[in-house]
Amino acid sequence: MRTARRATLRGMGHGIEDVARAAGVSTATVSRALRGLPHVTDATRERVRLAALELGYVATPSARSLATGRTRTIGLLLPWVSHWFFANVVEGAERTLREHDHDALLYTFDVFERGPRRRVETHVLRGRVDGILVVGLPLEPEEIVDLDALVRPLVFVGSGPGDRCTIRVDEQEVSRIAVDHLIGLGHRRIGHVTGHPDDVSPWSAGVLRTRAWRDVMGATGLTADALAYGNFDVGGGRAAAHELLTRHPDVTSVFVTSDEMAMGVIAAARDRGLRVPEDLSVIGVDGHELGEVVALTTVAQDVHAQGVLAARLVLAQIAGEEVPQRVTPQVRLVLRGSTAPPRDR
C-alpha cells in the first residue's frame, strides 16, 4: 500500500511547498535540510528527507539557483581537454565538485590553433558560475581584468600571475632537476623541446621551463641553442625532434617540457634509426601513466591532486574562507630506461 501511494504521488509533480507541508517546516528549512546546510537538527533533516522521498521530490538546479542566488556551478577555462595534464586536472576538479554538489562548466580556448592569438571570451561565464578555475591558459592582463569584472572567486592551475591564488610546481626546480640529471650522466649537448613559439606569457610553464633550461646550461658553461617547439602533444614532439636533430645532429640528449612530447621525441629517434638511450637520452615532465610503458625518465607531479585542491580552494573562497596565494606541489625524478651516459655515434 505504501509503495503504491509513493508511486502515485511521484507522478503528481510535487514541489518544495508540498514537502514543507508534509514535514511541518518552512520551505527554507526544506532547502537547507536537503542541501546539507547547517542550523537544521538531525531529527528535522531526517523528517524532511523522508517527506521528500515519499513525495518523489528532487530539487532542480534552476530552483536551487533561484532560491539561493547561486548556480552551484564552477567554470573551467583551459586551452585543451585532450592533453594529459589538462584532462587529469579536470577529472580531479570535477569529481571533487560533484562530491560537494557542484557542477563543472567546461570552456576550451585553443589560443595557438591558427593565426593570431584568439582572445578568451570571459563574458560567456556571466551569471552562469559561482567560481572559476583557469587551467594552464596564458591569459593577457586585459583578460584577467575581464575575469575580475565577473566578481567571482578565481583559482589558477599550472600557470598564473603571482598575485592570484595559484597551484603550480616550481618550474625552475623542474628544469634544474631534469638538466642536472642529464649533465650528471655526462651529456654536454642537451637539446630542448618546449610548447609553442607564440606563447610569451611571463608565467607560462613552457616559457619558464625554457628560461630555466638556458640558465642551468649557462651556469655550467654549456651552449643552449638546440631548441624546437612541439605544442605539447605527441605529434608535435615528434616533428620538433626531427627539426632539432636535423639542425643539431651532435645533440646527445633532449629535455622535453611534457611527457606527451617526450614520447614523440622517442618516436622521432626511432624514425631516424637512433636508439634510446644509447644514441639519444630523453627526459620529460609530468608523470604520464604511459611513461612506464615506453620507459620514459621524467620529473613527475601529481596532476590529479592539483585538480582536487583547485576545486577545494575555489569552494573555500565561495564560503568566505581565506586561501593561500600560492601552492607549490612537490615534484620528483622518476628514473627509467630513456636516459643513460652519452656514447659516440
Rank of each mutant, 00 (worst) to 15 (best):
T27C: 01
G236C: 10
T328Y: 09
V124L: 14
L137P: 01
G291L: 05
V251I: 13
P342V: 05
A267W: 02
V157K: 10
S82P: 02
V19N: 11
G136H: 04
A104P: 02
P342W: 03
F86N: 11
N88A: 07
G337M: 09
G320A: 07
L315A: 03
D225R: 12
Q172W: 06
L37V: 06
D42T: 10
N231P: 02
A240S: 11
V327W: 04
S31M: 13
Q317K: 11
L97N: 05
S82H: 06
G221Q: 11
R49H: 14
L139H: 02
L150S: 07
D271T: 11
L309Y: 02
V120N: 11
V200E: 12
R126F: 03
V19D: 03
V299P: 04
R343Y: 00
V251S: 12
G56L: 04
I318N: 00
R247E: 09
S62Q: 14
R332M: 11
E54L: 11
A20R: 10
L105V: 07
C165P: 04
R72I: 01
R326N: 03
P141Q: 10
A239T: 13
R188H: 09
T3V: 15
L280C: 11
G13Q: 15
E142G: 10
T3R: 15
H288F: 10
V293R: 14
C165T: 15
Q317G: 09
G287R: 08
L139Y: 01
R168I: 07
T3W: 14
G127A: 12
A268S: 13
M1L: 14
V19H: 06
D101G: 04
V334W: 07
I190G: 01
V256P: 05
V134A: 04
A305W: 04
E46R: 15
D302H: 12
V193K: 00
Q172S: 14
A4S: 13
A319M: 02
V129G: 05
A212W: 01
T298L: 02
I16C: 04
L147V: 09
L9S: 14
H83D: 13
T297G: 05
V200G: 01
L133C: 04
M1A: 15
